[in-house]
Amino acid sequence: MSILRNIKEISGNIVNTTWIEWVHPLIPNEPEILREAIRIAMAIKHCLICTRLDGCYFLESNMPELPLHPYCDCYKENISSDKLKNATAYCPISKFKDYIFTDEIKSKGKMYIFTSMGFSSDDSYTLSTEFERQALSCYLNGNYSLDFLDQNGQRIGIPITLNNHMFWSGWMVYPNGKIQLVTPFGGWIDEF
């Protein structure tokens, strides 16, 4: 029973739904300034990528490779479903207001995509809350794809559906189950 407890079927595939927290010794999940101080103190002897992954939550079946490199100090800790309830998705309104809906040159064609789906700058708040709602739901269901991982952190792609169009949005994973939008549009789903 306990072995099967965290196994469920998603889209016809049996997947492991255990959630884990990536742990690098000594680094607290918060506050950011203390994390930063410790990361800098460790920077000479420790991997910059691992120290940034510390505290981030992933589905065990969809996480960065562990160990990430030879002599990696990191390990994973299972997360209770109670802890996972604290997960949040944050989409700054400025990603639409000050980026997507500025002009075609700056948005490099992304403004056209959103206007042709029926949205304008006035919908920035609506879009940001809708992105947060869909992203959190997808993240918690393990419906995300691991994207770039470097000193800036782990980015993940999350599918968004608006007016029958499906596309990728790009998010950064932060400690304690927080994800934050990096870019609203990262390509059509069917192009991948």
Binding site: K108, K110, I113, F148, N152, V182, F185, G186, E191
Partner: peptide, 15 residues
């Protein structure tokens, strides 16, 4: 990330 005239996406968001 760039959208061309055919609505095709290329490049991407990187550090």
């Amino acid at each position: 990330g760039t959208i061309d005239g055919q609505m095709k996406y290329s490049k991407g968001c990187i550090s």
